[in-house]
Amino acid sequence: MNIGKSLILLIVAAVLTYPLVPQSSDYIIHVMTLAMVYMILAMGLNIVPGFCGLLDLGYVGFYGIGAYTAGLLTIHYDMSFWVIVPLAALNGALWGALLGAPTLRLTGDYFAIVTFGFSELVVLFLTNEIWLTRGPLGLPGIQPITVNLTWLNEAWYFQFYDKTPNFYVVALLVGLVFFIMRRMEDSRLGRAWYAIREDPLAAASCGVNILNYKVIAFAISAAIGAVGGCFYARWSMFLSPDMFKFWESFLVLCMVVLGGLGNIKGALLGAVILVCLGEVLREVLTSLGLPPETRFMAYGLIMVLIMRFKPSGFFPAIASSGRSNPLLLDLQKRLAARNAPKDEARDAAA
């Protein structure tokens, strides 16, 4: 195993054991948990602009749908988190498909505008449908995540008020989403998306039904966003419509662009960098006497610098997709074996 890989594994292991250290600070755990929520969102958003090449400015809409689905199901029906996650994902996918099917015929900027409008619609709905969402008053009193194992042992009923267990729940979700993304990336589905991103006409003439695959991408992306929202609702235990403003979409998009469009690891890195930067700026800006909202100016500046100096992000593109696939490694070996005799012959001739 090479050094880079071991180093990454070491960092991941260190981060995962941090909450178990007795001196660990609640604040750091909180920031890490938040970073992981954004990791889920960034991985989910990555599918649409990264894999399919469509600009999506309304991703936070699906995050909001997932969060309110989880919040309302918890308050009214007292459902378990583990049941709500798939339900929220399905609800997100449903709205993704409903929005995508009629609008994905639009291209480029027009599509971006429609998604932007959609996220504003979600916020307006959450603000005005007071009978359902309590509007601007917000949705307080959402129960935290519980694990009910009383069927194994009477005493095993856990309620995660504490930071640490929530940290592990979201780590589990990040792992799950990462796993799903890696498998999609290197499959018939992922390849169809890359084809659409690279050249839609050529993709169609290879037999890819462009509209269908765009809708699938949009629905899966929305489902992952809803899963992120679902955890957020049970973790923060309070929701209000202004948590799902356009700025959040912009922030997640920044993460994806910063890490490298279409690269899963890039999305993870982008999420960590921007969440940490947000925390640092909150301190720095207040000490300078500026309101914390000015941090969005810093994000804007970062985007400008990225576009100027590293236009394809830290990890450029998807070129690495499936390089670790055993089928391709096997093929590489066979090709090397096939080319070897030729090289020998050339050497002999020389």
Binding site: R188, A195, E198, D199, L201, A202, C206, L328
Partner: peptide, 17 residues
Amino acid sequence: RLFSALTVLDNVRIARH
């Protein structure tokens, strides 16, 4: 009109879609 950012193999793999 190739998928120029992808590998030669991926170009043909997409056609198996």
